[in-house]
Structures are given as structure tokens and as C-alpha cells.
């Protein structure tokens, strides 16, 4: 985000990539605790359904499996976008970035559909602690995906102005790290929240 004189040998050309990666990995380490807290809350409340539906009443495993698969495959397109950016193949990179964003949006659409289905079955945030913790956990994951989609689209468009080639603006690799992290959180959620509860 800035440039600084690092060492006498290294006038005005600090290793910004290194700094950004350290910052991103530290942030992702922190995010582990964030999602850990949400998942823990869910596990404490997973059977506290009150008069409302339980996990096995509402979960549609085949549907969620497909949307999980879509998010998983968006990691492939993301890493291919990064590969193209390393080779400075900007056109290719934009294609893969937008493909990743599209897959992310499909996942989000699936989540919206799933949420409305659950609400139709009588499960809302106010039904039971199970409902509260499920919607808040998956909702915050969805918010992370949405932010990722915004960053992907913004990066794809910013690349037209040539800013990426200067190493300024947002960095495809950094966004990639974020995106893959959101994906691995879903890997955990899919197993712990969905598959283990039905």
C-alpha cells in the first residue's frame, strides 16, 4: 500500500509483494478464529431447535453439494487467473477473474435460494438458537464471498487501465489468497455444518 526505503542497498524499491503477503496471511490466520467462533456457536446450538425444524428437516444435501462443488471449482479458475497474471497475459487473466466472480455469484444465488427454502420450512434467525447460529455463520461466509466477488470484478476492470502491470492497485495474488481462504472455510462448513448434522 505504500513504498518505503527499506535498506541502504534497496533504494525506494521495497518488496511490496512480500509485505502484502505477510499482511494477508496474518489476516487469514486471524480469520480462522473468526470463523472458529461462529462454527463453535453453531456446534453448541446445533440440536437446540425448540419448536422449529432441525438440521435433518431442512438440509438438502444434494443441492448444497452442487453449490459447494461450484465454490470449489472457483478456486481452480482463481488460481488460473493468478497464473495468467504472473505471465502478464492480461486478457486471459480477466477471463479467469470474471469466471471466478461468476462462480462466486452462482454460489451466492444458491445460498439465497437455500435461505428462502429454509424460511419456507419455518426456519428463520428467530426460530431457535440453531436457526440463529446457522444463518449468522453461513451469512457471514456469504458476505465474505460477496466482498470477494466485488474485489474480483474491480480488479478485472482496473486491469484495463494498466494499473495492475505497475504493481499498484489490488493484487491478483492477494485477492486469490482471500478467495481460496473463503473456499476452505466452506470446505469446513460443508462437512461440519451440513454433512455431519444430517
Amino acid at each position: 500500500m505504500t513504498t518505503e526505503t527499506l535498506t541502504p542497498q534497496d533504494h525506494g524499491a521495497p518488496d511490496m509483494d512480500n509485505m502484502r503477503k505477510i499482511a494477508m496471511w496474518a489476516f487469514l490466520g486471524s480469520e480462522c478464529l473468526f470463523f472458529g467462533s461462529l462454527i463453535t456457536t453453531f456446534l453448541v446450538y446445533r440440536t437446540r431447535v425448540g419448536d422449529g425444524p432441525s438440521a435433518s428437516d431442512v438440509f438438502d444435501i444434494p443441492f448444497t453439494s452442487v453449490s459447494s462443488f461450484i465454490l470449489l471449482m472457483s478456486s481452480l479458475t482463481m488460481v488460473l487467473a493468478h497464473y495468467s497474471s504472473v505471465r502478464k497475459d492480461w486478457r486471459q487473466m480477466r477471463v479467469w477473474l470474471l469466471a471466478t466472480a461468476l462462480l462466486g455469484m452462482v454460489f451466492l444465488a444458491g445460498q439465497v435460494f437455500e435461505f428462502t427454502e429454509f424460511v419456507d420450512h419455518g426456519l428463520t434467525v428467530t426460530t431457535s438458537p440453531f436457526g440463529s447460529s446457522f444463518f449468522v455463520l453461513t451469512g457471514f461466509h456469504g458476505a465474505h464471498v460477496a466482498i470477494g466477488v466485488l474485489m474480483l470484478v474491480a480488479t478485472a476492470f482496473m486491469s484495463y487501465s494498466g494499473r495492475l502491470s505497475d504493481g499498484e492497485g489490488m493484487n491478483v495474488e492477494i485477492i486469490g489468497l482471500y478467495w481460496h481462504f473463503v473456499d476452505i472455510v466452506w470446505i469446513v462448513i460443508f462437512t461440519v455444518v451440513y454433512l455431519l448434522q444430517v
Partner: peptide
């Protein structure tokens, strides 16, 4: 950096 989070959380 990442491992601290991954180990601490569980």
C-alpha cells in the same frame, strides 16, 4: 502466521 490460527482455533 497462518498455522497459529489453524492450530489455535481447534
Amino acid at each position: 502466521l497462518f498455522l497459529i490460527g489453524v492450530i489455535a482455533a481447534p
